[in-house]
């Protein structure tokens, strides 16, 4: 599947996810196939972007890769080992390897927990590190994500959306994961803050040799951050390939439709539109 001699950090083979729909007085119980046989592999230090619209199954896939949900079929391999969540509980070693950052940083932080404790909690749960070391690690991480040491004792409501997303990223990195699953991490942020967080993610990836699975609906963000892209629609991976190939020559009609619908800020395109409109008005 991949040319590199080293096994991919994460690999999925025929991932299937069914959700049971309970029956009612009027309808029989059934199931909805949210993912239908997805294959993928991400090499170390690379970014796989999963692109799709609402209901496509992209977040379902993200939750499976982040080891939150067990798939109903297929095989998920992390560092060349099969992980089966439905049969065996995960140990701290595997939990540390894979971490997740969610879309809404307002919802993913406990409003009553100070930032320092937010960052130290994963260490309390997964390691037997002494308190002083935990504190040092948390303070170092706060600086690493571009916040100030005095933020340690503050509560989430005292931060802006962009700062909160930095905190969420810092928490995900506390256990030195090798794989970070990012589910729409910049979708709730303003454009200028979005640029800062994307820059931070790029820096952290270089520094820690992180592997990213980046879920997004925004093609312009994907084009900026991804190495490999998977376009997913109605639970099927309709197109997969390198960023260059996919953006230069999209093959699948759905990918093309997605590209055609994405607004362009290109001056030539704006000029053409303005002229079309002028002509329509004159005529």
């Amino acid at each position: 599947m991949t040319a590199s001699p080293i096994a991919p950090v994460v690999e999925g083979r025929g991932i299937v996810q069914d959700y049971a729909v309970p029956g009612s007085l009027f309808a029989r119980a059934g199931k909805v196939r949210a993912l239908n046989g997805i294959d993928f592999a991400v090499d170390k230090g690379k970014t796989l972007a999963i692109v799709g619209e609402s209901g496509s199954g992209k977040s379902t896939l993200a939750r499976i890769i982040a080891l939150i949900d067990a798939p109903s079929g297929g095989e998920l391999r992390i560092d060349d080992h099969t992980v089966d969540l439905s049969r065996k509980r995960l140990g701290p070693a595997l939990r540390s390897k894979v971490q997740m950052v969610f879309q809404n940083p307002y919802g993913s932080l406990n409003p009553r927990q100070k930032i320092g404790n937010v960052l130290m909690e994963p260490l309390v749960i997964n390691t037997d590190m002494p308190a002083s070391e935990r504190r040092d690690r948390a303070e170092a991480m706060i600086r690493k994500v571009g916040l100030q040491p005095e933020h340690f004792n503050r509560y989430p409501h005292m931060f802006s959306g962009g700062q909160r997303q930095r905190i969420a990223i810092a928490r995900a990195l506390m256990l030195n994961p090798s794989l970070l699953v990012l589910d729409e991490p910049v979708s709730a942020l303003d454009l200028s803050v979005q640029a800062q967080v994307l820059n931070l993610l790029a820096d952290l990836q270089d520094e820690f040799d992180l592997t990213y699975v980046f879920v997004s609906h925004d093609l312009s963000v994907v084009r900026y951050i991804a190495d490999e892209v998977m376009v997913i629609s109605k639970g099927e991976a309709v197109e997969q390939g390198s960023r260059e190939a996919l953006f230069a020559d999209p093959q699948h009609p759905y990918t093309r439709a997605l590209f055609a619908a994405t607004p362009v800020t290109d001056v030539a395109a704006i000029r053409a539109r303005v002229e079309r409109r002028k002509a329509a008005r004159a005529g």
Partner: peptide, 19 residues
């Protein structure tokens, strides 16, 4: 600043930010 922060206008590795 806003226009250059658009990811599709990125040149090179980093996005210029408003700040």
């Amino acid at each position: 600043a806003l226009l250059s922060a658009l990811p599709e206008h990125a040149t090179g590795d980093r996005l210029p930010t408003v700040s």
